[in-house]
Amino acid sequence: MSRVGKYPVPVPSGVTVQIAGAEFIAKGKLGEARLPLVTDAVETTIEGDQVWVKPLTESKRSRMMWGTTRALINNAVKGVSEGFTVNLEINGVGYRAAVEGKTLKLALGYSHDVEYPIPDDIAIKCDKPTSISISGRDKQQVGQVASEIRAFRGPEPYKGKGIKYDTETILRKEGKKK
């Protein structure tokens, strides 16, 4: 039995949800999110200000899609009401970031600056030259952009230089001994 799927998704005030055919639509202050539903495995219903997901059968696919569909619906509702944010930290002498128009410029110790084009649905802010804040309504897209930026110069274990998530802990290694 799904531990996630059995709970309803609460719909906050200011968010409207509807099911149109095999598609879940959530509209809120941050925009609109559309999610294709798996109608052959789970049944999705809206009751008042809650969205319920129930498996159609006891098959393995229905049980797998039960919790997955509920989590995706919850992320869509949270995304249009609050949004998602991922924070990155830059460590290293001379390493810095700046937003110029629709481009993120990163100085990461290479012979050239790395330029990352910012996608349309994503907002990137650099409050300090060593911190990057990525926000948007699609959790998957926010995480993907953060991962792509981190991949330009991942943190190394000896001095901790590079780009890391603010919640990430870098396991430090001891340098060579004489």
Rank of each mutant, 00 (worst) to 15 (best):
M1P: 15
M1Q: 00
R3V: 04
V4C: 11
V4K: 14
K6A: 12
P10V: 06
V15C: 03
A20I: 15
A22Q: 11
E23T: 04
A26I: 14
K29N: 11
G31F: 07
R34L: 15
P36H: 05
L37G: 06
D40S: 05
V42N: 04
E43M: 15
E43W: 13
E43D: 11
T44A: 10
T45R: 13
G48E: 10
D49H: 12
D49T: 10
Q50T: 07
Q50W: 00
V53R: 02
V53Y: 01
P55F: 00
P55A: 08
E58C: 12
S62W: 03
R63F: 01
M65N: 09
W66C: 05
G67T: 06
G67H: 10
T68W: 09
T68G: 01
L72W: 13
N74D: 04
K78P: 04
V80A: 10
G83N: 09
G83I: 04
F84H: 03
F84N: 06
F84Y: 06
N87L: 13
N87S: 15
L88Q: 02
Y95I: 13
A97T: 04
E100L: 12
G101T: 00
K102D: 12
T103L: 03
T103Y: 07
G109S: 08
Y110K: 12
D113F: 10
D113V: 07
V114N: 14
E115P: 12
P117F: 09
P117Q: 08
I118N: 02
I118T: 10
P119Q: 04
D120H: 09
K128Q: 12
T130H: 13
I132P: 01
S135M: 10
R137N: 11
D138M: 04
K139P: 06
V142Y: 10
Q144G: 00
S147E: 15
S147K: 13
S147V: 14
E148P: 13
I149S: 04
R150F: 00
A151D: 08
F152C: 05
R153A: 03
E156N: 06
Y158G: 13
K159A: 15
G162P: 00
K164A: 14
Y165R: 03
Y165W: 01
D166Q: 12
D166V: 11
D166W: 14
T167G: 02
T169V: 05
T169G: 05
I170T: 07
L171C: 00
L171T: 02
R172Y: 10
K173V: 15
G175F: 15
K178Q: 10
